[in-house]
Amino acid sequence: MEREQVHKMLRDMLRARAFEERAAEEYSKGSFAGFLHLYPGEEAVAVGVIHATEPADYIVTTYREHVHALVRGTPSKAIMAELFGRRDGICKGMGGSMHLFDAERRFMGGYAIVGETYPIAIGVGYAILLRNLPEAVICFFGDGAVNQGTFHESLNMAALWRLPVLFVCENNHYQIGTEIHRHSAQTDVYKRASAYNIPSEKINGMDVLSVYSTTERLLKQIRNGGGPYLLELETYRFRGHSMADPGTYRPSVEVHSFTSQDPISIAAHELESSYPTAEEIAKVGPDCITQLTEQAQQTGHLLEQDLELIKKDIENEIDAAVDFAMNSPEPTMDECWLCFQNNQRAETLL
């Protein structure tokens, strides 16, 4: 893979991690309330998949979606301001953390009712079909979401009408506190697709490079009329389900086995030969610290500085996003009504 692409993805993973950790900090400070579902640990999924999309593709996702929007190109300040519920948020402070929408980037929304992404995605897919365009829809969902009826209903229709949808399962093994073996009789999510004659596969979702190349291949196929596909990505969330959940129901051995596969350190590893990484990267995932310390000793100075520059850059970006959010005004009730009645303005109702 091109060094440039790897470099960009590593950068986005670092941005994602920094954004989420900062959001957690602001939440703990009381800058905003509500449900906050964070993404650390799962970065390789959103980054790998979304880097493989074209601007003309559509994305439908869940309530754990800040990173998806960020990687898609929504400015970090517009996302942060939305988390703060401010006027300059991407949804003007009306949607919040779980409901990011960015029409300009074909980011079709974050949905907080589990199982809603499928019908929206096949609807968008159906429109693409009717318009006969070389576009695809990416439909994200969790492992817990496959037991909602809409999964089965939507997969059937997608297959029946050969809709251009890539179903992407972010399998982090948990439905809040319920581990996958306790919520699903079939724990290989990808196998379920075969009931609807939809081709599918499962790959390591901690490895951004294979996520990227697989998605790129699948999207090409889908845009060329290949019909729907289900891609299962095995991953793990390092934090609890949301800020309200410490995640203490998970055995520490399990948590450890995944943090040692930190997708960020895996991607950093790829850059090693030409781009020997430093302690800076090691800090990102607890278990890659020792792994990378040795390599850091053989590090070329220039490259280490490069990485530091990236991290500094990201830090500045996130600081600026928080500043922007904090200084953005609260929306007014009039603006609230305007959002609500936006579509009625041209119509005579009474």
Binding site: F32, A33, G34, E82, G85, R86, C91, G93, M94, G95, G96, S97, H99, E330, P331, M333, C336, W337, F340
Partner: peptide, 14 residues
């Protein structure tokens, strides 16, 4: 008669 806004002040006002 409005969906609940996310912003805390508007939420309270609703």
């Amino acid at each position: 008669n409005i969906p609940t806004p996310f912003n805390a002040k508007l939420e309270a006002a609703s």
